[in-house]
Design a protein around this nucleic acid. Sequence first.
DNA 1: TGTTAGCACTCTAAGCGGTCGAGTGCTAAC
DNA 2: GTTAGCACTCGACCGCTTAGAGTGCTAACA
Lengths: 341, 341
Amino acid sequence: MQLDERKYTILQAIIRNYLETGEPVGSRTISKYTDLNLSSATIRNEMADLEELGYILQPHTSAGRIPSDKGYRLYVDKMMEEKEREVEEMKETLLEKESKMDHLLQKAAKMLAANTDYAAVVSAPQYHRNKLKFIQLSRVDVNQILAVIVVEGNVIKNTMLTVDETLNDEALLKLNILLNTHLNGLSLDEINLGMISAMKQQAGIYSDIIANVIDAVAEAIRADEDLEIYTSGAKNFFKYPELADNERASELITTFEEKQLLSELVQDNLADENNTGIQVYIGSETPVQGMKDCSIVTATYELDEGMKGTIGIIGPKRMDYEKVVKNLKLLKSQLDDLYRK
Amino acid sequence: MQLDERKYTILQAIIRNYLETGEPVGSRTISKYTDLNLSSATIRNEMADLEELGYILQPHTSAGRIPSDKGYRLYVDKMMEEKEREVEEMKETLLEKESKMDHLLQKAAKMLAANTDYAAVVSAPQYHRNKLKFIQLSRVDVNQILAVIVVEGNVIKNTMLTVDETLNDEALLKLNILLNTHLNGLSLDEINLGMISAMKQQAGIYSDIIANVIDAVAEAIRADEDLEIYTSGAKNFFKYPELADNERASELITTFEEKQLLSELVQDNLADENNTGIQVYIGSETPVQGMKDCSIVTATYELDEGMKGTIGIIGPKRMDYEKVVKNLKLLKSQLDDLYRK
DNA sequence: TGTTAGCACTCTAAGCGGTCGAGTGCTAAC
DNA sequence: GTTAGCACTCGACCGCTTAGAGTGCTAACA
């Protein structure tokens, strides 16, 4: 058996209706809902076929049908093709250029959640190709030294070091020069042990300081370890009865609170090199444990060469995919443009 | 009518039992539960009195009694007197000295939530008496200057400035000296407009840079504007049926997610100057909207002179106050000691 | 051959009445 | 002052019935 034009129209009608109501939909409803002018009996025959093909499910005998994951998938794939351009003309920068990245992203998540009535996730951009740009040690107090480390992409890391020996300004200057001449422009892979021990030797009695700074450098470069994730709209889960029962809600809230559990999602998204558009995970397709009853739609934005982050929406499987995709594309294009003009 | 010894014993028994079960407790239960050796009928009489006095409530005729806010309050006040010392001997540092403050506090919240089975809140310490300690401008790129600002208490703020004119190293050094000689050791109140314009004049064509740096300084000093709050254990709300119904849960989760809504709590706590111990808010006493059905227990910790933060537990009114107080005192003493030895 | 009307069947949700048990207030007796 | 006893109240629970939605199947129609 094949999925012909009419079957797809009926499937589409079932899904659209189910998205609205959240209730299983029956043959009579479809018979009126579409302009196919078919009786409920005919629809029933087609529905039996669609069920056999695996696109729809019956929760129990004598209930209406609901879309299966496979059904949603088909629907989403077809829909995505159509909606491609729609967004282009809506581009207008709603986001002012916030000075602080974290505020900006938190605000983006909030906006996304508010616009869609689903839960939203935004990950801070991750910096790949990370090279050290600049190191500076400064005296802050009689026995305290501040190390400032700047990595390509202007990620800044500060570390406070306590020094026992009162190291004089001249020695500090030397250390600064030593660090910068050796390390500038290098990536993590390029900083090897030989280099480090050479530097330590040159630093003499201050080799401890070098060791501490190196540690801080390593931490600054692989910043992806504590990937920052912003969320908003957890309360929206409660708007959809199929997610709001205690057990499920508790699981979702936990995942949402322990933001690191969402990192899978971000990783999965960024890993996909040639993924320029929108990614949709339906039900069990999800890379995140504990969200099997949800659908997740994500997009990747790119602030600057190599600085990629993820934005996403989490909601019930019967989410309004069109609205979600539109919102994500919009936000994506805004973020993409933000630092590029 | 007066609250005598026996009435209090009965009240205590009612509360203890209710804490365990979450169900209204009847006279027969109390008759057996206590060692007063009174029949249920006598208990009933006393309970009628306690109800008249406002310490307990009857959800409906022929149901058992549950404690009122006033009843909890009495119970908590008495309990607190007794538990004062118990904690002292348990002090052992479970928290390793984490290098990163934010990680440490997030971990503290997590621990608190895990130990108590309630939701936990931890606020990052706020720095009062804030004085500028150190400013440094460094060239990072041909037209990029990094400004590092260190405030007393070693709060560090970085700002990246883009400069049009290619300002040379000598000029940069001058600006550094200018900034440090004028501003070091000053608090926000002490930096006035006259001072700023004098500096701008001396800076000549680089007055823009001074202006930008001053802005960053102002932001660094009043860091309390974006008070950082860490939470954990939102899922625990679902363990208590009286909080887990959709509407209430949604409200709680929202408050918990929008952490800024919890700032009232922190402010309230810190404002109370001579509050050295534990604060308990029962039901409607709460300073946080949307937590009227909860009890909140908080403590204030002090990392270093003037660096105060708040830790707290949010749970149902029938929370295990003894356990909660013990845990908070423990964590408080750990945090207090952390940077003091 | 595809479409449709009709019918018997299934299953759920909702309403109803009865019963049970926990708990109360009151009264009278100790 | 304490207690036993009793009538009363009220919610939880159980089983039953009913209404309604929706199905699958069959037979008739174009």
